[in-house]
């Protein structure tokens, strides 16, 4: 209340540390603000996904047969592998937060790098899954052309033919390839111009993008070994009841249906399966965007770890990005059983 005290306080808090913003009085206040801010942001993220979860729930409640028939096209082993990868990445970033609290910057850098590589592996596996489905015409509702035969489009790109992979996988890999080359160039350039910090950073990004190719190659080999994984002979047996179900539905309605009507009803059921994949692509696509955003955020942490920014009284950003990463992981932990493990 008294003037003397208040003016004194005003001058006292000018012992600001290197990373304390001018409008905060203490490091604790800054940390608490950031922490509350990221938690509120995570709440908005959950609500952002909530629309998709509601759509999923409604469709599954009203049309359970679509989900039972459609989910067999998702490969639960690839999904499980991705789950393990993400869980492991959550471990590494949590460990990184602890190291940041202790001021062990080098350890934070390594752990963040592992987290980023895991994220990239996830995207690589996802690319294999997506391209495989697109090859069979398993797309969103309006573009759904899957005929139940498991027939794949033949690769037309020369590079796809020579590697024995799908065209789509090549298209999806263009951006990572450009990034890989660009980052490698940047890293070399930085080392040559005596900027080892940036050189190290871009080298780390090269390793990260390497994770994408690791995931894609591993996924692809898995597909080859299991005869195309999903859509191979194993799944084709599963997808037969789909046609039978449609036929038996028709019979219940009586015999006065002519052949053309039978045909359209069957087609309608098949194409309604596309709704499942609409929801699948929206959910996993939005999740993948969050993974990519996570890689960008983690790269920022990676750089600042290399620059030795973390101290026991300043480690907030690692904590915040870590929390975000856990949320991205958590959403996948819901998506995996909801989409892959319906049986």
């Amino acid at each position: 209340m008294a003037l003397a005290e208040s003016t004194q306080e005003h001058h006292e808090h000018h012992e600001h540390g290197e990373f304390i913003a001018h409008h905060f009085d203490t490091p604790e206040q800054q940390f608490d603000s950031g922490k509350l801010g990221i938690w509120i942001f995570l709440v908005t993220e959950v609500l952002f996904f909530s629309g998709l979860f509601v759509a999923y729930t409604l469709w599954r409640y009203h049309h359970p047969q679509i989900f039972e028939q459609a989910h067999v096209h998702l490969d639960k082993y690839l999904g499980a592998a991705n789950t393990v990868v993400l869980l492991f990445s959550s471990l590494t970033i949590a460990w990184g937060v602890r190291c940041a609290q202790l001021g062990k910057n080098q350890a934070v850098a390594i752990l963040t790098l592992i987290t980023m590589v895991c994220a990239a592996i996830f995207i690589g596996v996802k690319a294999v899954e997506y391209s495989h489905k697109w090859d069979m015409g398993i797309l969103v509702r309006s573009a759904f052309t899957y005929d139940g035969s498991g027939h794949h489009h033949e690769a037309t790109l020369p590079i796809a033919k020579s590697l024995g992979v799908s065209d789509w996988l090549i298209w999806l890999s263009i951006v990572p390839t450009i990034l890989l080359v660009g980052f490698a160039f940047l890293s070399t350039f930085m080392y040559l111009t005596q900027k080892p910090l940036w050189g190290k950073f871009w080298a780390g990004m090269v390793v990260t993008i390497g994770g994408y190719f690791l995931g894609a190659i591993a996924g692809h080999i898995y597909m080859k070994v299991t005869d195309g994984g999903v859509g191979g002979k194993h799944v084709r047996a599963h997808s037969e009841p789909l046609v039978l179900l449609a036929a038996s539905d028709e019979q219940k309605h009586g015999d006065d249906h002519d052949h053309a009507q039978d045909h359209t009803a069957k087609q309608k059921l098949d194409r309604d399966i596309g709704i499942f994949f609409s929801i699948y692509y929206c959910m996993t696509g939005l999740h993948a965007i969050h993974i990519i955003a996570g890689i960008v955020a983690l790269s920022w942490i990676f750089y600042r770890s290399l620059a030795n920014h973390w101290r026991p009284d300043y480690f907030g950003p690692v904590d915040y990005v870590g929390l975000y990463w856990h949320l991205v992981d958590l959403i996948w932990i819901y998506l995996f059983p909801m989409l892959y493990l319906i049986d």
Binding site: A55, W59, V140, R141, S142, A143, K268, R271, D272, G274, I275, S278, I279, Y281, C282
Partner: peptide, 12 residues
């Protein structure tokens, strides 16, 4: 893309 969730023509 025509995901069909809100479109009654596609069962939405």
């Amino acid at each position: 893309m025509g995901i069909g969730i809100f479109d009654p023509d596609m069962g939405g």
